[in-house]
Design a protein around this nucleic acid. Structure first.
Length: 476
RNA sequence: UGAGGUGUAGCGCAGUUUGGUAGCGCGCUUGGUUAGGGACCAAGAGGUCGUGGGUUCAAGUCCCGUCACCUCAACCA
């Protein structure tokens, strides 16, 4: 009992104090540390390794859909921001501005990019001349800065890492197709790699990206029933091409403005992983993105042959492509069990004198804590099979919860009851901004996405005829 | 930007009410014994008490200012 308490004291209780649980877990597992400047974070090796795995998976998908990587400058002339009216209005309050360079006040202040539509638009206008130059399909991996008032590691920080795709097309249809295609790429990635089932759909006017014609979002359900916007894909129409003069000479001999898109996901995905799968013992990482997929814990490590056998096993697993490690530190086995569980490693392998003699190992999976034995001879196969199963199970589990936690509401009261119970709520909406604001005020829930292909009778707020079915939730 | 809270050793905290030698737990170092769910013994190292000023013989403690961080709300990926 005393020992149990000692463990529990490491991190706050996930059910009763989720925000605290989150910050405890991200710092104690060494994913992240706070930076010296307000709102900044240091992504430590264990956290960055997750990001690298996310990047690897996403980058492959971007390349497979015809995109190339490039890099645009961090500093943007302030005047660029003001060329698109909605854009500047949306971003001006949270932009960081450089006014001095080389000890001298700059003639024109520079913005540290909060997003890159403007610089990239400027460059596209230079590069684009003929319809033959289209489409332009470029992605950038970069950091951006948004001066946020309150911050939380991975979820909202002043500086964060992301990927922003920026494309230009000859027609509206093609640009819209691109917008939806990339939303689909995100969705597939979230489910197969992060084991997070998501809701996708169009955002309301209130929630859309500043400067977009339409924004489509990917929403994920967190442990506490709140929603996290995990990615967005924007159809920008000709808003930016008109502001930045992105024109081309078409087949018919006339100049036309291009149709552009942009889409991005960020290090917030790491926060999504943590909050979607974590449990009372800490992180639960899906094998596809886990920095360490299997951790070998030698038992009675000082007994002859144990460490050697553990090292051999690790090497064997690595040779088979498993991200394996061995904890040969002086800590007790029990300490290691808890530590690596907190760090979310999908599979633990216990290897002691008894096992070695029997030619076996003990496998313990992080998601269910189920213990099994497997032969050392086919170690790699057994571990790979278990990793695949853990990945499947995490998705299955998350899907089940997602389905169980969707309710419908006919009135604002029902909506409130729904979100208070930690649910996502489908409800009819008349389409007006007043109702949307009112719902938010009364329930603290916002319109996450407009649900496609469903019809509702009445608006849950004003009772007029509903234009859309909307998925409402409290959000991060 | 509004409301609340916290700053004392690497981490978590006590000490502040009533001013008088800087404490506890974990972690860290060294040596030894241990080892299948956060082991044990012994000896150590480590602190301008967030910061600036003031009151006082004397300030972690009282007064004034200031900064940072956390939680909740509003805005965003």
């Amino acid at each position: 009992m005393a020992k149990e308490n000692q463990f529990v004291n490491q991190i706050a209780d996930i059910e009763t104090d989720f925000p605290r649980w989150y910050t405890d877990v991200v710092t104690r597992t060494k994913l992240v540390d706070y930076g010296p400047v307000k709102g900044t974070m240091v992504i430590r090796p264990y956290g960055y390794a997750i990001w690298e795995n996310i990047q690897k998976e996403l980058d492959a998908r971007f390349k497979a859909t015809g995109h190339e990587n490039a890099y645009f400058p961090l500093l943007i002339p302030y005047s660029f921001m003001t060329r698109e009216a909605e854009h500047v209005e949306g971003f001006a309050p949270e932009v960081a501005v450089v006014t001095v360079g080389g000890g001298e006040t700059l003639a024109e202040p520079l913005v540290i990019r909060p997003t890159s539509e403007t610089v990239i638009g400027e460059m596209y206008s230079k590069w684009l001349q003929s319809y033959r130059d289209l489409p332009i399909l470029i992605n950038q991996w970069a950091n951006v800065v948004r001066w946020e008032k309150t911050t939380r590691p991975f979820l909202r920080t002043s500086e964060f890492l992301w990927q922003e795709g920026h494309t230009a097309h000859a027609t509206e249809e093609e640009a819209m197709e691109e917008t939806m295609k990339m939303l689909g790429v995100y969705k597939e990635f979230a489910e197969t790699c992060l084991a997070i089932p998501v809701f996708t759909g169009r955002k309301t006017e209130k929630e859309k990206f500043a400067g977009a014609v339409a924004t489509f979002g990917m929403e994920a359900m967190m442990h506490d029933g709140k929603s996290l916007q995990a990615g967005t894909s924007h159809y920008l129409g000709q808003n930016f091409s008109k502001a930045f003069d992105i024109r081309f000479l078409d087949k018919d001999g006339t100049h036309k403005y291009a149709y552009t898109t942009s889409w991005g996901v960020s290090t917030r995905l790491i926060g999504a992983l943590i909050m979607a799968h974590g449990d009372s013992r800490g992180l639960v990482l899906p094998p596809v993105v886990a920095p360490v997929q299997a951790i070998v814990i030698p038992i009675a490590a000082k007994k002859e042959g144990v460490l050697e056998a553990a090292a051999t096993l690790k090497a064997k697993l690595r040779a088979a492509g498993v991200r394996a490690d061995c904890d040969a530190s002086d800590n007790s086995p029990g300490w290691k069990f808890n530590e690596w569980e907190m760090k979310g490693v999908p599979v633990r392998i216990e290897l002691g004198p008894r096992d070695i003699e029997a030619g076996k190992m003990v496998l313990v999976r992080r998601d269910t804590h189920e213990k099994t034995e497997a032969s050392l001879e086919n170690a790699a196969e057994a571990v790979q099979a278990l990793l695949a199963e853990v990945q499947q199970n995490l998705l299955r589990r998350a899907k089940k919860r997602k389905e169980e936690r969707i309710v419908t509401a006919e009135s604002a009261e029902e909506l409130l009851r729904g979100v208070e119970g930690g649910n996502f709520v489908k409800a009819g909406w008349c389409g007006c901004r007043e109702c949307e604001d009112k719902i938010k005020e009364q329930t603290a829930a916002s319109a996450r996405v407009i649900v496609e292909g469903e019809t509702a009778g009445k608006c849950c707020c004003c009772g007029r005829e509903a234009k859309h079915v909307v998925l409402f939730a409290r959000a991060y």
